[in-house]
């Protein structure tokens, strides 16, 4: 109930301000109010989350009493959640909002915030076919500024590429191979064979390196980005994800679509799931 009230009051402020200030062609009034309400960039998500701009997207000066104002933040936060498909309870929402806007330890987000990343679903051409490939991207400091970098990838053909057999049935170099100057390597290192069978027991392939190699060799060719979303572990004990909602209405743009309260173990499990790890 409170969440709905906050949302409505947030929207009302947007609409009233839009009515008063927008200088627009009359038939486009409604559209422009919707565009104004939309969280148009991730940058705007951060600014609204932090209470650093007004409802028209104009930045507050740090000395402005509205800057990072807790009441303003609560109002903005109410419109930063996906209202149509949200699968979390109102009490969870309230708990989260109270935590990030608390007077003693408020939490703010920005591009350099800790523990958040982008999941970018792309298409690459591989062996003559267009195939989905997921890139996990992170922001890092470099040189005089910051850059987005690829932290990891997930690609179906790679998943079984280095599946290693274990025990009695696996291929091996017998324990006296040294006496033969390892001449049996000739039979082990062959195309379409299982060279991974001849590695240490704890061998773990670095699939990012394989990906980079394939891109360099021209075996993987970038085609397009299909969609992306962002995952945040920046608020201790919480996880939320952001998706872009391209639809008519006032609750659009970059919005929180998942909100979960998590402990350390759940965080670890969730990260494995998001990174598509076993």
């Amino acid at each position: 109930m409170i969440k709905r009230f906050l949302l409505l009051s947030g929207l009302l402020v947007l609409v009233i301000q839009g009515n008063l200030q927008a200088q627009i062609v009359s038939e486009d009034d409604e559209i422009e109010r919707q565009l104004l309400a939309s969280t148009k960039q991730l940058n705007q998500f951060f600014s609204r989350f932090n209470g650093e701009e007004d409802t028209k997207g104009r930045e507050f000066e740090p000395e402005d009493r509205q800057y990072r104002n807790s009441r303003l933040r609560k109002r903005f936060l109410s419109i930063l959640f996906d209202e149509e498909n949200a699968g979390f309870s109102e009490s969870l929402f309230e708990e989260f909002v109270n935590k990030v806007t608390s007077d003693d330890q408020p939490i703010f987000l920005d591009l350099q915030a800790k523990e958040w990343f982008a999941v970018v679903n792309t298409t690459f051409r591989y062996k003559g076919r267009s195939m989905p490939l997921t890139l996990y991207m992170q922001i890092q400091e470099e040189g005089l500024g910051y850059e987005w970098v690829i932290a990891d990838i997930s690609f179906e053909p790679y998943k079984t590429l280095f599946d290693k057999q274990r025990g009695q049935t696996k291929e091996f170099l017998h324990p006296m191979s040294h006496e033969l100057d390892f001449m049996n390597l000739r039979k082990a290192m062959v195309k379409d064979g299982s060279p991974e069978s001849y590695t240490l027991a704890d061998f773990e392939p670095d699939l990012l390196t394989v990906f980079l190699y394939d891109v360099k060799m021209g075996n993987l060719t970038f085609e397009t980005v299909n969609r992306l979303n962002y995952h945040f572990f920046s608020v201790d004990g919480w996880y939320f994800s952001l998706n872009n909602f391209n639809r008519p209405g006032y609750n659009t743009g970059w919005l929180i679509s998942d909100l979960v309260k998590i402990n350390a173990q759940q965080k670890e499990d969730l990260l494995k799931l998001l990174y598509d790890k076993k």
Binding site: I24, L35, L144
Partner: peptide, 14 residues
């Protein structure tokens, strides 16, 4: 439309 949004400026490595 008379709606625009300008992000913050972020510094890149160069």
């Amino acid at each position: 439309y008379d709606v625009h949004y300008i992000s913050d400026l972020e510094r890149q490595p160069d």
